[in-house]
Design a protein around this nucleic acid. Structure first.
Ligand SMILES: [Mn+2]
Ligand SMILES: [Mn+2]
Ligand SMILES: [Zn+2]
Ligand SMILES: [Zn+2]
Lengths: 149, 149
DNA sequence: GCTTCAAATGCAACTTTATTGCATGACCGA
DNA sequence: TCGGTCATGCAATAAAGTTGCATTTGAAGC
């Protein structure tokens, strides 16, 4: 469990009832050091307690809507989910390994994005800027050279 | 048609046979001022010439593999496609309107991303850095305020 | 403690988007 | 003309998420 986040508080602060299912889903996300897919979250929660996959999707929608969790695009067809930035978690970019499909969180300061020119000129409303780094992770790198496919 | 790109040349330069279908798909992408979904591309091409949607998916895969076209993640479940950066087209970030689902290309200089800290510290291989700006486009902004849903 | 009612959950069917397998067709060179 | 390779078509399948509706749950009021 994350040192700084009380998951029950996160939920109630966001105006959400802290049901057991919601707590389990949020725990699965918060305890992971990298963003997880809905399927992975379902598996993780279902390991400890029966839960329908639709319920997981609905809980994820709710958590994202209320800003507790971030929906992170992988570059693949499915989304991943991670704790939304808050007092204890700065916003940060993510890395996506195109070989194993695993994401990882990058340090907030690893990329410096200057958004000022955009804010001045863009005619619409800007809600979020998402940066994703694609490549091959250090685990997959050795495998990459031998099997040329 | 883009002033500077000869689509036939783009294909043959990439080592691809310039079939009629491939040319039509590439034209649909290159003539658009914003990235298009596979479904939109299929509709566009099919309007002028019978083509199977699977063929469109396969052509898109081929074009992406050979670096002629970029697969751009929308923040939704489907991908969009745009011309890959080349001599006449600098890499640039994209904006995704979460209300109408339309993307648009942003000026290359609208966001300045400093990637140096990442290159120095990241232990894997970096192939690409994708930046997506989410929000509400100027067309949708008026609609947004009246219908609160 | 009982009742009530909205919110949460379960389950089946469905949708969207993309992929796979296999058959057919077109093209190019020998 | 023949052979082979690559492109295309078509049907079936897969992956990921959504919808509709029935059932359960649990907090609020009595
Ligand atoms: Mn993260
Ligand atoms: Mn573009
Ligand atoms: Zn990897
Ligand atoms: Zn819009």
């Amino acid at each position: 469990m994350c040192q700084h986040c009380n998951y029950g508080n996160l939920l109630t602060t966001a105006g959400l009832e802290a049901t057991a299912h919601r707590l389990h889903v949020l725990e699965a996300i918060g305890d992971s050091t990298f963003p997880l897919s809905a399927v992975a979250i379902h598996q993780s929660v279902a390991g400890r307690r029966a839960i329908n996959r639709v319920t997981v999707y609905r809980i994820l929608d709710t958590l994202v809507e209320h800003g507790v969790v971030d929906r992170i695009s992988t570059g693949g067809r499915a989304f991943n989910y991670g704790l939304a930035p808050n007092a204890h978690h700065q916003p940060h970019p993510h890395f996506y390994c195109t070989r194993c499909g695993r994401m990882c969180c990058l340090a907030p300061e690893s990329l410096n994005v200057d958004t000022h020119p955009l804010w001045k000129t863009f005619p619409g409303r800007i809600d979020r800027i998402e940066v994703r780094v694609d490549g091959v992770c250090k685990n997959c790198l050795p495998l990459e050279t031998q099997s040329r496919n």
